[in-house]
Structure formats: structure tokens, C-alpha cells
Simulated assay, not measured.
Amino acid sequence: PNSHCEVRASSMDQMDGGGAGRRVKVVGKVERLDGQSLTYSEFVDRFMKPNLPVVLTGLTSSWPSCEDWTFAGPDDRRRPNLPFFAQNFSSPRVQVADCSAREYTDHKRLEMSMQEFVDHWVRNSNTVSSSGHGEASSLYLKDWHFVKEYPDYVAYTTPPFFVDDWLNMYLDSHPMHRDSDIANYKNEVNCDDYRFVYIGAKGTWTPLHADVFRSYSWSANVCGRKLWLFLAPSQSHLIFDR
């Protein structure tokens, strides 16, 4: 599976479907289970084989990222520790989607430094807080190859349900660059992988899509909330042009 570690301020309050004022009609229910008490065989039989989504709890409390990347807010809810990212993970450039600008079937992509991304988030948040109106940052840091860029920092431990990661095991042994020294000199990711970190404020989102190679995926929220909308295979015909 490809993995994501989300860091978000909050989920969207609503998601429009097809036009202003319209909401997506959500049907069905995703099961929520304690990941500590679920066995691997139960996970395979109940969710992986039938290809069903599931929310697993209790698997991230010991992760270093949950401690380093967040801090306790006034209401005891964890908040993104943005200065920590700017100070400790000063990637030369990160890929950012502007959720207010469409480009073909996706959002417009930008590149900026981590410090620029953090400054934009803080500046917009302060404007909303002081004026009481306006919009939070629409920039969404996406597809950040964090594991490859910072291999010495262990942000998380892969839950036992997802350790059979054939895709990343293969890619880890096939470098993108013939000369790894050149890649290191240019501070480039030497190998491709599908272990990403995403960071976004309230209101940032991703358009309808299928994950890479149609593979299984798992995602963990380090802090904040995220709203997911899944389209069942029986409804896939509804997304094609008529």
C-alpha cells in the first residue's frame, strides 16, 4: 500500500457536489475499530479481500510525529507545529497545490520552500483571526517524499496490517538516478516511493481520483480532521461523461 501521514488544521465543513449550494449525498457507513484488538487475519478477511474501507484507532499515539509535529491547543486539541517543520525540515522546495485554482482535472501546482509555505499559512490564519472574516490558506502541501528526504527521522511505525508493502519495497531497490552522489549533491530524492506527508489548513482538498496504480492505501491523521468521500465500485459508471 502507499501511505500518507496527514497534518491538518481541520476538515471541510461541507463538500459541494456539482455546483454551488449542493451537497454530496452520503450513504453507507465505514466501520470504526480499535486497531490494537484487530488481528491481521481478521483485517484481511473482513476488509482487504472484500476491498472495504475501515477506520482503525489507537495506532499512532507512540509515533514521534504525533509529539514533534503537534502541540496542545487551548482546547486540548492538537495543533500543527508549523515552526518545527520550518526549522527542522528545510527542504529546498516542496510541492504545493493551490486549492483555489484549477488546472485541467487537478489543482494548480506550485513549488516553494517550507518556510514560504509556513509563512503563507500563518499570515492567512492571522488575517482571519484578527478580522473575523476571510479565508484560511488554500495551499495544500502534497506528495512530499518525506521518508526519502529524511531517512534518519523515523516519523512513524508502519502498522502490522500494512507491512507487506510490495510497491515501496520494489522502488526502494531501484534508484531514479544512476549516480546517487549527484542526486545527493543536488539534494534530490534518489529513489521514487509512495510514502507521502500532506499538510493543509481547513478547506484544502483533493479532487476525485484513484490512487497510484490503483493500489491499496492507508492514511493516518497526525492531527486535525479530514473528510473522506469514497465512491463504491457499483457507482463507478456515474463518473464518466455521458
Rank of each mutant, 00 (worst) to 15 (best):
S10I: 01
D13C: 02
Q14A: 15
G19M: 00
G19E: 00
G21L: 04
V27Y: 09
R32Y: 07
R32A: 09
L33A: 08
L33N: 06
S37Y: 02
E42G: 07
F43D: 04
D45L: 14
R46H: 14
R46Y: 08
F47V: 00
M48V: 13
V54C: 03
V54A: 01
V54P: 04
L56M: 06
L59E: 00
T60V: 07
T60W: 01
S61A: 10
S61K: 10
W63F: 08
P64I: 00
T70W: 03
F71R: 12
A72D: 12
D76M: 15
R78T: 12
F85H: 06
N88D: 03
N88V: 02
P92S: 01
R93V: 08
C99E: 05
S100L: 04
A101K: 15
T105Y: 14
H107G: 04
H107F: 15
E111A: 05
Q115Y: 00
F117Y: 10
V118A: 03
D119R: 13
S125T: 09
T127F: 03
T127C: 05
S130W: 11
S130E: 15
H133Y: 02
G134N: 13
S138G: 13
L139T: 02
L141M: 14
H145E: 00
H145A: 00
H145P: 02
F146T: 11
V147Q: 10
Y150V: 09
Y156T: 01
P159E: 01
F161S: 00
F162Q: 01
V163R: 09
V163T: 12
M169E: 08
M169W: 01
S173P: 03
P175H: 01
R178A: 06
Y194D: 11
Y198F: 12
L208Y: 04
H209Y: 05
V212P: 14
F213P: 09
Y216T: 10
Y216V: 11
S217E: 15
W218S: 00
W218M: 01
F230D: 14
L231Y: 01
S236F: 03
L238M: 14
L238N: 09
I239N: 02
